[in-house]
Amino acid sequence: MSAENIKVSGIAGRYATALFELASDAKQVDAVASDLATIKTAVEESADLARLIRSPLISRDDQERAILAVLEKLGVSDLVRRFVGTVAQNRRLFALADMIDTYGRLLAAQRGEVVAKVVSAKKLTAKQMEALTKELKAAIGSDVAIEADVDTDIIGGLVVKVGSRMVDSSIRTKLQNLKFAMKGVG
């Protein structure tokens, strides 16, 4: 499946597609993906940065100045800085995380990879990601790109979604199932 054949929609889809095309033309697709991963990690690790991106109370100019200063500190490329600056000027920073995820799906499609969304209770280590990628590749039969998210509410285990298939081995779900089973005992 090529990047042209993947279906994207909405604000995030339009912006991610535009960035993907710009990155392709500049032959910087992988560098942009790396910069976007850096931004995503920074937003996940900083409540202040997440507030900056999501707050409608911060003026357009203040939001743009602040995010560009952060991107400068993170050392992201000029292409990504200009892109995020445009996103900020258009008051679309609230959709930045979705844009980053959509860019990742476009990149995976170009590489012929299947995207697996993985949710864990805590951030997976590089070794765990490598092992999970290997297992998923063996199970699916093709290369896998993992979109990892953290949700402490699942307590432990993993929730893995590939296409329309989902495997939920989270402790939260196991406890819910046990609770339902116990209601029938009496």
Rank of each mutant, 00 (worst) to 15 (best):
M1K: 10
M1S: 09
N5E: 12
N5K: 10
I6T: 10
I6C: 08
I6E: 02
I6K: 07
V8T: 10
V8H: 02
S9W: 11
G10V: 13
G10T: 08
G13A: 07
G13L: 11
R14V: 09
T17I: 02
F20T: 02
E21W: 10
D25M: 09
D25C: 02
A26E: 08
A26H: 15
A26T: 15
Q28Y: 08
D30K: 13
A31N: 06
A31H: 03
A31R: 09
V32A: 09
S34F: 07
S34L: 14
I39M: 14
T41W: 06
A42L: 07
E44M: 13
A47K: 15
L49Q: 04
A50T: 05
A50V: 08
R51S: 13
L52C: 15
L52R: 13
L52A: 13
I53S: 12
S55N: 10
I58D: 01
I58M: 03
R60Y: 01
D62H: 15
E64H: 14
E64D: 12
I67S: 05
L68Y: 04
V70F: 04
L71R: 02
E72P: 00
G75A: 03
S77H: 02
D78F: 12
L79D: 06
L79Q: 07
V80P: 05
R82M: 06
F83R: 00
V84N: 00
T86M: 10
V87N: 03
A88V: 13
A88T: 04
N90D: 14
N90V: 13
R92I: 11
L93S: 14
A95C: 15
A95F: 03
L96F: 09
A97I: 11
A97M: 14
A97C: 13
A97D: 10
D98Q: 15
T102D: 02
R105A: 10
L106K: 00
A108P: 00
A109H: 05
Q110C: 15
E113K: 11
V114C: 14
V115N: 02
A116I: 06
V119A: 12
A121Y: 01
K122I: 15
K123N: 09
K123H: 07
T125N: 05
Q128S: 01
E130F: 14
E130D: 14
L132P: 05
L132N: 14
L132H: 04
T133N: 10
T133C: 08
K134E: 11
K134Y: 07
K134M: 15
L136A: 02
K137V: 06
A139P: 01
I140E: 04
I140P: 00
I140A: 05
D143T: 13
V144Y: 00
A145Y: 15
I146A: 06
A148Q: 12
D149G: 12
D151G: 10
D151E: 12
D151Q: 05
I154Q: 03
G156I: 08
L158N: 07
V160S: 08
K161G: 03
K161N: 09
K161L: 10
G163E: 03
G163A: 03
S164Y: 08
T173L: 03
K174F: 00
N177Q: 03
G184K: 11
G184A: 10
V185E: 09
